[in-house]
Design a protein around this nucleic acid. Structure first.
Lengths: 238, 238
DNA sequence: ATATTTCTAGACACGCTTGTCCAAAATGGT
DNA sequence: ACCATTTTGGACAAGCGTGTCTAGAAATAT
């Protein structure tokens, strides 16, 4: 059991800022974090309270004391993770290059940040898997996620692209569509790899993001006046 | 129970060619199909044999008689569905427009076919969800899927794009990358919608596919000689 | 019509999970 | 050192799921 807790901690290090270790709140948070891990790994049906208690280094009774029954615990976990993910998404969205010096490089760097912070991070994967597997069982919980998460992300990103277009960087008609395409391209290389737990390396993420942005600009970069050949060269360089 | 069977049949109509109704083989197939449905809906852990027996209109013992224990049944289901999906993917891949008359229209039509036959169909969704949730529990089963499925699909599609490029239709450098991007774009609009059971309408699929191909050609269509503006017009028209 | 195979419905033992209860131990504040 | 709160670990009942077994019904073949 002690070994279990250690092992779990390895995989969960610095997930959240912990309160004073050993305190009441520390246990509460530890249970929540561990529960997130286990629910993610095993699904709702495959998870039992003993696993969570064991990996959190806590007795089963303590889990019940803090979060009531299994269903309440699950809802608490989803709520917590949703908030964390949304926060990080909008934090990342705030780093969008509104006044790019080098459009290609800046967009690629943004793509890397978005991938690392929002797509390939543990919480993001957790939520997407959960929506996939348990969404039908908890419609109200995930309705909230859909509106607060992807819905707002798309709209915010679309607004950024619209601004870039207005500033003369891009030639686009439907910013919403373009935002969806941008996000789709960014993930093109890892659709399958991420299905299992495989985390692409930093280098892979960077190369993949560069590829995505390169194609994106080939289609949408503004070409004030010049031959197609000239434009292609500059886009490929980016 | 009878009501359950009827309801299940509604959702499963003409999934597979059924042997003579009421026969031994018909029951076997019915169990397999129903099991696929239930495993997909509930996950492995959330599924119990009684659900399957009930929805298949069969007694529990019959399920055991035909497929042994739960694990064997699950493997049989995955194997069956994998074969069905692979078959359909390559059937669809064979309709790729190798000698397009209207590149944009032909590619869009292909995209529609691919979406309908391989992405949004029940089996495809089932497999992807299963790989996501149970992949870690049955590595050997899904290793096979990964190699036989997406791996071969990408390679085959890349070969088609390479041929189009060689024939002067496209201007691309890395056919594998382009194939991944094409598939990613095709789904751009429905990443979220498909997470739950929502099936996009035919019209939505067509519009989405047209959007994807439009952007794809904006980036990669061959422009033998002409201004960027002229090229854009022709691409948008497609 | 009869023999053979298959299916059914229910009972059953076994193990696992949930959620509650409790007395003893540990922890933390004063 | 003391008291209050929290945690522990184990026992417990109740419920559910698996997989087996049975006798009898139903379907199929001969």
């Amino acid at each position: 059991m002690i070994a279990d807790k250690r092992a779990a901690d390895e995989n969960r290090k610095s997930m959240t800022v912990m309160p004073a270790p050993g305190s009441h709140l520390a246990k509460r948070q530890s249970i929540l974090d561990t529960a997130a891990c286990v629910f993610c790994r095993e699904g709702y049906g495959g998870t039992n309270i003993d696993m969570i208690a064991c990996e959190a280094g806590v007795s089963r009774q303590t889990v019940y004391n803090h979060h009531g029954d299994k269903d309440s615990l699950f809802r608490a976990v989803v709520h917590e993770v949703t908030e964390r993910v949304n926060h990080r998404v909008f934090e990342t969205l705030a780093t969008f290059p509104d006044q790019p010096r080098d459009l290609g490089a800046d967009l690629a760097a943004f793509a890397v940040r978005f991938n690392k912070n929002c797509i390939y991070d543990r919480d993001g994967k957790f939520l997407r898997r959960l929506v996939d597997t348990e969404g039908e069982r908890y419609p109200e919980l995930f309705a909230e996620w859909r509106e607060q998460g992807p819905g707002k992300t798309w709209a915010a990103l679309a607004a950024r692209f619209a601004r870039l277009a207005h500033a003369g960087y891009l030639e686009i008609e439907d910013p919403d569509l373009v935002a969806r395409q941008f996000l789709a391209l960014i993930n093109a290389d890892f659709k399958v790899a991420t299905l299992l737990g495989e985390m692409p390396s930093d280098e892979e993420i960077e190369r993949s993001s560069a590829n995505a942005v390169s194609m994106f600009l080939r289609a949408y970069a503004c070409r004030p006046s010049g031959t197609a050949a000239a434009r292609d060269k500059s886009a490929l360089k980016a």
